[in-house]
């Protein structure tokens, strides 16, 4: 789950992992998330690194802090995460796809049909 191959800092990976847990409904609104120490133990990482991951989410208003109790999921958490992933991650992936398509001279229609195929395949897999 956590890769130390250097492609992404560990604290970013921790933040993204927690986001996915929130999106999947493993942590609900006003529920307490794992502490920095629990995360450190789970992933064998330094607790200061885990704290950085939690702080990113707090800065983005995905988590809020209750002094002495820990960090909790905000009301808007899911919305913020979905919005962020659409605008950053998905858009970034699409930029890469566009670049690759350009280099391979793949035309728009062909690309659209490939995307459609992928989406249908996923639907099939989910069944």
């Amino acid at each position: 789950m956590i890769h130390s191959d250097g492609t992404k800092p560990i604290y970013v990976q921790i933040a993204e992992w927690l986001e996915t847990e929130i999106l999947n409904g493993h942590f609900k609104v006003d529920e307490k998330v794992y502490s920095q120490y629990k995360l450190a133990e789970m992933f064998t990482i330094n607790p200061a690194t885990a704290a950085k991951g939690l702080n990113i989410l707090a800065d983005e208003k995905i988590l809020y802090t209750r002094r002495g109790l820990g960090k909790f999921v905000t009301n808007e958490a899911k919305e913020i995460i979905t919005d962020k992933r659409k605008n950053q991650k998905l858009k970034g992936l699409l930029d890469e796809v566009a670049l690759e398509a350009e280099q391979l001279h793949v035309r728009e229609e062909e690309l659209f049909s490939m995307l459609k195929e992928s989406m249908e395949k996923r639907k099939g897999d989910a069944k």
């Binding site: 130390s4 992933f43 990482i45 330094n46």
Partner: peptide
């Protein structure tokens, strides 16, 4: 590379 995850 082996210890970096442990370090602050």
């Amino acid at each position: 590379d082996e210890v970096e995850d442990l370090l602050e």
